[in-house]
Nucleic acid binder design. Structure first.
Lengths: 105, 105
DNA sequence: TATATGTGCAACCATTTGGTTTCGCAAACT
DNA sequence: AGTTTGCGAAACCAAATGGTTGCACATATA
């Protein structure tokens, strides 16, 4: 049972949950109201997201508030970094190419 | 059969393939040499990555070179953007908090 | 022309995934 | 105390996933 961020954000419903939660903390019932599935299905997604530490729980009486662990999202950003370097280099290459073409006129 | 970028990068082997390909274009056989699976298994991953447009093919005789479609990677960056705004805001809040604490001394 | 090589595709298999229904349990009302 | 409410856990199920082996088919090479 793999449980990393990439696995976490792979499912569209989970990405929707993340987007929802990002605005403000919510309880499973409130979250489930936004989807066409059962609360239990949403609960499963919440478990997966919590296990890969993208979400954190806060208990208030019998209610559990789920909120986004923004810091964890940075890990995706960190992973992207190496490729960002590539597309920025390519952009620079295009940039110097354009400069050359310009000066040639 | 879902086939989007998030699904594409969900598998660790596929992320490794992306990292490998990012440096230079490669044929399935060469790629497969880097993994403990069969060439066919790698071929399946290549198909998935190509279907979600993260990879592009270039045929040279009987060899097929796979290379990274860097532009497509930007879509993940674009998705991250909304959350980057959140963590930057939180950083700023921390920043102003620190400034306040400082000036109070 | 015969053979070797590089590749994709199909069939098959065990495991995982995403969903459901049913249940148990603690917290909050009446 | 009895009932409602919010939740997670378990059992079950169909579909998807990641792997395998075996095959077909071009393109090189002898």
């Amino acid at each position: 049972m793999r449980r990393d961020i990439f696995q976490g954000i792979a499912d569209p419903t989970r990405r929707a949950i993340i987007a929802l939660i990002a605005i403000q903390a919510m309880t499973p019932n409130t979250i489930a109201e936004n989807f066409n599935t059962t609360r239990q299905a949403v609960s499963k997604h919440l478990r997966i997201l919590t296990e890969c530490e993208l979400l954190k729980q806060e208990q208030h009486g019998r209610e559990i508030y789920y909120s986004l662990e923004v810091e964890k999202m940075k890990e995706i950003d960190k992973w992207l970094e190496q490729y960002r370097r590539i597309w920025e280099t390519r952009f620079n290459q295009l940039d110097t190419l354009l400069a050359k073409t310009k000066s040639r006129k």
